[in-house]
Write a protein that binds this DNA or RNA. Structure first.
Length: 891
RNA sequence: GGGCGGGUAGCUCAGUUGGGAGAGCAUCGGCCUUACAAGCCGAGGGUCACAGGUUCAAGCCCUGUUCCGCCUACCA
């Protein structure tokens, strides 16, 4: 592969398009149905087919992509199963709105044509989000893309429904459910969002049917009184022990309704008298059942008042509230109105206020399914990470309630149940029965309701792999390795997948569940369209490049904390990507003449060579370890630190002389080898985070073949002979770097021009230190910009005009003849001495403490003693210097 | 009402067998040093929310207080 110079700055757009197309064309995302390599699988949380990519998706899919790309580099057979969700209510709403714009109501079209319209819409714009995932770099196996309404998945849905019905785990009945009058469908408990609102508590007088007076009830929803069929009082409420009548006259309706006694009533609330509306309140419904009360439905499914609402018929429910209050006031029956805060349920799709409503619905009996799902997490068969979320999972699972799965909409899986027109027999089956199983009648009508979208999503981990057929894919990839998801759908989706997976596959759907944070705006608020604080990931990608964006997300994806995102942060990581680019640009300048990746010749390695190889091995291990624990921020941080602050800031600078030196070809070649090796490993380590720029550089790097996606993640093995060589390289380089930094600090603090070449003498009693400094003096001279570096015994004569710094166990004398300002130098040294004294005092206090010496573990004590030795030596050196400088400064 | 999470530098946040308070950004000072000014070199900045406790030793463990966020719930 030929080498080309890189452009001066990294330009992401063209690079990203080019490589994504290449990867897809080469089939680099494809999983193998069967393979000897270890299997690794993730099913994507299917985005709504109506959706557009938001920050939540971006984070979620970036993390999955990091894992998948990492596992591929590790040699696994990786399946990342993509697809979308038909999002029943949301999609129906979208298409309904489109029709409404043309003045068409879906009922005019009829069910079949409406569904056709939805499919048409899906074909035209439903795949937008898939392309956006591609822009993010997602390496899904697109050939296997699934949709919850596909034939195969629909078959899985029917199979599950029929089986659960036959097992008695699905039932139908008349119940109070959460009803959205706008969407005109029932919702499950989870689909209701509670919001605390300022409402009113209306106190209304219900006159006794006989005698004087009446009881006062308190309600937040006066319009429901039209459907009252009783008032209830606690059986032991002494205030109402003796009443003149056993019934009251319901105001506005003039209906006689009984006074009943039920312990559900809270005596302390309101007046202690509860109006009972079995058709419009879940608790009242239960009370009604206990007391055989009739249910009168006064609110229609569209939110208007029904025929049963007397004079209020046809009014909207909220207009009715006002009208009823007014009517009560006129009759003198409105006692008072108190302000009252209470939680009000809203539809999670359209945000309208939900109305508890009586209707015929289908339910899943969840308790028997939940038990194994709880056990699987308790036993560790499925790990929830971070662990704190397991609590939330248990909390919900222990208190789980039956799941209302029927929806009164058209777009979705129509419930496979048929009713006989002749004998009313209910039949549940995979396909429409030809005739009634009971009476043989042929006039069968299918249930018009469809299933909750989450019912089909609950099957996602196995339905996407071909279930109910026993496919090779299932065999290879189920259970999946990990599910990556946000906690907002822990109940909606994760818990239900657990239940269904265990029930139908006999095994958990995933070994790990990694629960990541929510992305918020920079003030920590949830991003929402209504607040106008959304940052569009596609705009960010346009402005900063995909790699920078992904790196930002990974770097901030700390477990258990939300991500506050601002473009400023992304900008920072764009700088990092650009830094990498320029480092590669530098490296390629030195490697361009057909460098072939000759193995490293250990004998020729310089100190920086050995040091960076040692650091590289450690960093690589650190990244692997962090990724395997889903600590994305640690992985991203370790790589960032290494690339920028070790490789670029120190290694490249230290290696320059050798790289440019024509006269020492062996040393030059050794550094080239190291440069090549480190850069190659950096690209591999960074590839999961920043796939595009790494592929682009990889392509230009001599000695690589094919896509970086086919390469192997570095093992983190040492390139050096043994660990003692690594330790030695690191400690020597630490000394060298400390010396350089010390001189630079003096330069900065004494305002010495960077151009001025300085003479430095290093004093040390330690022969090894002197030898190390001598041996590597060129690095120090070069990076600290010295004229010369001499070493001497600690007793040597000291220049009176030198500034002093401590590096390791050496004292550096920086000659500042004619430049030095002793007052300034004195201030600098005193400041350092103060710092030192503070540290040393703390340590001495410890060592003077008998209980510390007696009770602390030996290694901790030894460590502190060691530190004391180092610090007091330093203090000694500094005080010698200080005394001299005081003399010169005349103080 | 119940539960969970958080409060660490100006900002955003890391920080687990309890033993040296850290990063990025921002700020200040100095640099066009032949990969990079989207850069380089250096510096300043902290009562780890508050109060107690356990411990030789607490940002970390325990108790209480307070503030913020989220989830959840059938007091109408």
């Amino acid at each position: 592969m030929s080498t080309k110079m890189l452009d001066k700055g990294y330009e992401p757009q063209a690079v990203e398009r080019k490589w994504y197309a290449y990867w897809e064309k080469e089939g680099l995302f494809a999983a193998k149905d069967q393979d000897p390599a270890p299997a690794y699988s993730i099913v994507i949380p299917p985005p709504n087919v109506t959706g557009v990519l938001h920050m939540g998706h971006a984070l979620n899919n970036t993390l999955q992509d990091i894992l998948c790309r990492y596992r591929r580099l590790k040699g696994d057979n990786v399946l990342w199963m993509p697809g979308t969700d038909h999002a029943g209510i949301a999609t129906q709403n979208v298409v309904e709105r489109q029709l409404a714009a043309k003045g068409i109501d879906r009922h005019q079209l009829g069910r079949e044509q409406f569904i056709e319209a939805v499919w048409k819409w899906r074909a035209e714009s439903g795949s937008a989000i898939i392309n956006q995932l591609k822009a993010l770099g997602a390496s899904c196996d697109w050939q296997r893309e699934r949709f919850t309404m596909d034939e195969g998945l629909s078959k899985a849905v029917r199979t599950v429904f029929v089986k659960l019905y036959e097992e008695g785990l699905i039932y139908r009945g008349l119940y109070i459910t959460n009803w959205c009058p706008r969407c005109r469908t029932a919702l499950s408990d989870l689909e209701v969002e509670h919001e605390e609102l300022d409402g009113h508590l209306y106190h209304i007088q219900y006159p006794f049917s006989q005698g004087q007076g009446g009881v006062v009830v308190a309600t937040t929803r006066p319009e429901t009184m039209l459907g009252d069929t009783a008032v209830a009082i606690h059986p032991e409420d002494e205030r109402y022990a003796a009443l003149p009548a056993q019934s009251v006259i319901l105001p506005l309706m003039n209906r006689e309704i009984p006074i009943i006694r039920d312990p559900y009533v809270e005596r302390a609330f309101g007046t202690g008298v509860l109006k009972v509306t079995p058709a419009h309140d879940p608790n009242d419904f239960e009370i009604g059942k206990r007391h055989n009360l009739p249910s009168i439905k006064v609110i229609n499914d569209d939110g208007t008042m029904s025929d049963e609402a007397g004079g209020f018929k046809g009014l909207d429910r909220f207009e009715c509230r006002k009208a009823a209050v007014k009517a009560l006031e006129e009759k003198g029956l409105l006692v008072k109105i108190d302000p009252h805060k209470h939680g009000v349920g809203h539809c999670y799709r359209c945000k309208n206020i939900v109305e508890p409503n009586l209707s015929q619905q289908w339910f899943v009996k969840t308790k028997p399914l939940a038990e194994p799902a709880i056990e699987a997490v308790q036993s560790g068969k499925t790990r929830i990470i971070p662990e704190a979320w397991a609590k939330t999972y248990y909390e919900w699972m222990f208190n789980i309630r039956d799941w209302c799965i029927s929806r009164q909409i058209w777009w979705g899986h129509q419930i496979p149940a048929w009713t006989c027109g002749a004998c009313n027999e209910l039949m549940v089956a995979m396909e429409a029965p030809a005739k009634c199983a009971k009476c043989g009648g042929t006039n069968l009508t299918q249930e018009t309701d469809v299933l909750d979208t989450w019912f089909s999503s609950a099957l996602w981990p196995f339905s996407t792999m071909g279930w109910p057929d026993q496919t090779a894919l299932l065999k290879t990839f189920y259970p999946t390795s990990v599910l990556v998801t946000g906690f907002d759908i822990l109940f909606f989706w994760v818990a239900r997948m657990m239940m269904m997976g265990l029930h139908f596959m006999g095994d958990v759907p995933f070994n790990d569940v990694y629960v990541h944070a929510l992305v918020r705006d920079e003030e920590g608020k949830k991003m929402s369209k209504s607040k106008g604080n959304v940052i569009d990931p596609l705009n960010v990608i346009d402005a900063y490049g995909t790699d920078a964006f992904r790196y930002t997300l990974a770097a901030f994806a700390a477990q258990g904390r939300d991500i506050k995102l601002s473009e400023k942060r992304v900008e920072g990581y764009r700088h990092f990507i650009n830094k990498l680019w320029n480092a590669a640009r530098f490296a390629l300048m030195h490697l361009e003449q057909g460098y072939d990746g000759t193995p490293i010749d250990a004998a020729q390695l310089s100190l920086p060579d050995r040091w960076i190889l040692s650091r590289l091995a450690k960093m690589t291990r650190q990244v692997s370890l962090a990724l395997e624990e889903y600590k994305f921020n640690e992985a991203a941080g370790a790589a960032y630190q290494f690339v920028w602050h070790e490789f670029c800031d120190w290694y490249v600078e230290a290696a320059k002389p050798a790289l440019y030196d024509e006269n020492r070809p062996q040393a030059r070649d050794a550094s080239r080898q190291v440069l090549w090796t480190v850069l190659r490993d950096i690209l591999l380590v960074l590839h999961p985070f920043a796939p595009f720029v790494t592929e682009e550089i990889w392509d230009k790097l001599p000695g690589t073949q094919g896509s970086i996606m086919r390469a192997t993640f570095p093992e983190g093995k040492a390139y050096l002979a043994d660990s003692s060589a690594m330790t030695q390289a690191e400690s020597q380089m630490d000394l060298v770097m400390a010396a350089i930094t010390a001189v630079r600090t003096i330069r900065g603090e004494m305002n010495i021009s960077p151009a001025a070449k300085l003479q430095v003498t290093a004093l040390s009693a330690n022969e090894e230190t002197r030898r190390a400094l001598d041996q590597h003096k060129e690095i120090i001279i070069n990076l600290a910009r010295l004229e010369s570096l001499a070493t001497a015994d600690a007793q040597a004569q000291r220049s009176p005009t030198a500034a002093t710094a401590i590096a390791g166990d050496a004292t550096l004398l920086v000659e500042l003849k004619g430049v030095i300002d002793f007052t300034q130098e004195l201030q600098r040294l005193e400041k350092e001495m103060a710092k030192l004294n503070k540290d040393l005092t703390a340590i001495n206090n410890k060592l003077n403490n008998d209980s510390f010496l007696g009770k602390a573990p030996a290694d901790v004590v030894a460590e502190v003693r060691e530190k004391q030795t180092v610090l007091s030596e330093k203090q000694e050196k500094l005080s010698v210097t200080l005394a001299r400088v005081r003399g010169f400064a005349g103080k």
